[in-house]
Design a protein around this nucleic acid. Structure first.
Lengths: 303, 303
DNA sequence: GCAATAGTGTCTTTAAGACACTATCCC
DNA sequence: GGGATAGTGTCTTAAAGACACTATTGC
């Protein structure tokens, strides 16, 4: 051990002299990456109601103004056993690619998550390696947890690294990509008991993490357009937390947290559809943490 | 897909009819579990000062009363390349055991973490499966994050699931177990640049998680004996956060958080070594979250 | 008595929450 | 004008933080 301690940090140098681990010392495992991708979009009442009947709005706002925003999760319907026909989180095995010089290039876990999300949504992956966080276009991505209980896949031992993604309203996945069976599903209408594998548990963990992150980070801004109103921001909180918030107090709390939002000076082009004042437009500020935090209203617990 | 949707939840039944995944679809990866085990113990000045000279205290308190408590992390000194001679987190490959009926039994990730910790500390593992959390004796354990960047081990692709453990003052690892090179090292004196693999990063993530968890959970009680004084609890916070706290206010804040601590009615047998009132003894309460939280003093940031 | 340690009283400042109110816009 | 939406004023309560003070113990 003495020689290694004196040659400083020569991990790459050492590698050439190292034999591989004895294959008897470990057992190879299949590793997958699953993504809990969340977005906020209007409930799709169009498919069941009068979308074609309603005259199209003259503005660029295609969504109905009276649409109810709801939290959606990206799910794929499995085409094969096990759990064929059930909803599952998008994901897949981590890969290795063959580089231009013929060498094998292993895929980073974060890269795999970005790739899976891009494949399902049809969006081009644009990994911003300068930022501390991984971004797919305007999608924020972070690691959630790893699930490896034996038997979670009935066929073989699979360890799954789950990621959590926050996205502004994205196009329907069927518009592009290769996952014809993928869709944004309202979280409230997901039948958790019918989900494949342990994905209901992963989804629940992702939702709890998302709710928690809204409290002490400015991540709510990842769900809205680059310029947004305080009301739009409040709707993010109300949608994720599932309860209405006091609008005047929310307004003040957002503006009192330094670096949360930044005034653009502009306002919306017009007020609400049925009248109302124009709203000031903000963009995301530079803070990474909120001080003071926006705590969830205290839950009523059984005393 | 229809038949699977109609037979309810028959994952185990399906398994018998399933072929294994095509080995070309995935690449097997070696998975390890690493543990960031933290404890609070007096700085070991005994080895360099007058431990043998000082007359032993007549009480059961063997530690010197004027010893400075410090945060320690369990590390092992690597005996072989790569990174031979460097400090590393305890850990190892996940295993499979052969059950009594000859069948292979895969190891859960949590189990692997408990086993690694038990092997290094020489403590018997006693997994309490009824509790939501895994406990090794009085050790609290939770998953931290997963690290899988290619090249983090120079020999082969290894994905490591890191765990975070909180423990009351444990015996020195050399007292038992098979890891002769393991030791509790004061966190402040760890040379992060000299640590093996990406373990410095994992340690940093673990320390941040620990600091954060103290704020909104009662986990500080995992660092102290089953019965403890408010002052001992405050020393946990001061040690982990690395800054002194206002004792009178801390006292009130702890008692005002419902379910944090529970009065035993007893007091310490005697006051401080140099005089002082006897302290009331408390045990951990039933709360899982603290309301209100004990927030870290605001950091002075560059404005 | 005196130093040391544990614990309480109370005041100021900050933040949370509720309610009333003003400002501006579309029709 | 009138309804709708955005935003402000202000009061009450809770919590954070600072300081002075009391209580109890070992020596």
């Amino acid at each position: 051990m003495a020689e290694a301690a004196t040659t400083d940090g020569g991990a790459a140098d050492e590698a050439a002299f190292l034999a591989a681990y004895d294959p008897r010392d470990y057992e190879p495992v299949a590793v997958t990456v699953d993504v809990v991708a969340l977005t906020i979009r209007p409930l799709d009442t169009a498919a069941t109601s009068s979308a074609a009947v309603k005259p199209a709005a003259t503005t660029t706002e295609s969504a109905a103004d009276d649409a109810v925003p709801a939290l959606h999760v990206l799910l794929v319907r499995r085409g094969q056993a096990p759990f064929a026909g059930r909803w599952a989180l998008p994901g897949g095995f981590i890969r290795a690619t063959v580089g231009p010089d013929g060498s094998r290039v292993e895929e980073d876990l974060d890269q795999a998550a970005v790739r899976e999300l891009a494949e399902e949504t049809g969006l081009a992956a644009s990994l911003d390696r300068r930022a501390a966080d991984r971004r797919l276009g305007r999608v924020y991505l972070e690691q959630l947890a790893t699930y490896g209980t034996p038997g979670r896949d009935p066929r073989m031992r699979i360890i799954s690294v789950a990621y959590l993604a926050f996205a502004p309203d994205l196009p329907d996945p069927t518009a592009g990509g290769d996952a014809a069976a993928a869709a944004w599903v309202p979280v409230a209408s997901v039948d958790r008991a019918e989900m494949a594998f342990d994905h209901a548990r992963i989804l629940a963990d992702g939702l709890e993490r998302a709710s928690s992150k809204l409290e002490y980070t400015p991540l709510a801004t990842a769900f809205v357009a680059p310029e947004f109103t305080i009301t739009e921001l409040r709707e993010v909180y109300e949608t994720v937390w599932g309860q209405p918030l006091h609008a005047p107090n929310f307004h003040r709390k957002v503006l009192s947290a330094p670096g949360f939002v930044e005034d653009t000076g502009a306002t919306t082009a017009r007020g609400g559809a049925r009248g109302g004042r124009r709203a000031r437009l903000y963009r995301a500020g530079s803070a990474r943490l909120l001080h003071p935090a926006l705590l969830r209203p205290a839950q009523e617990e059984a005393q």
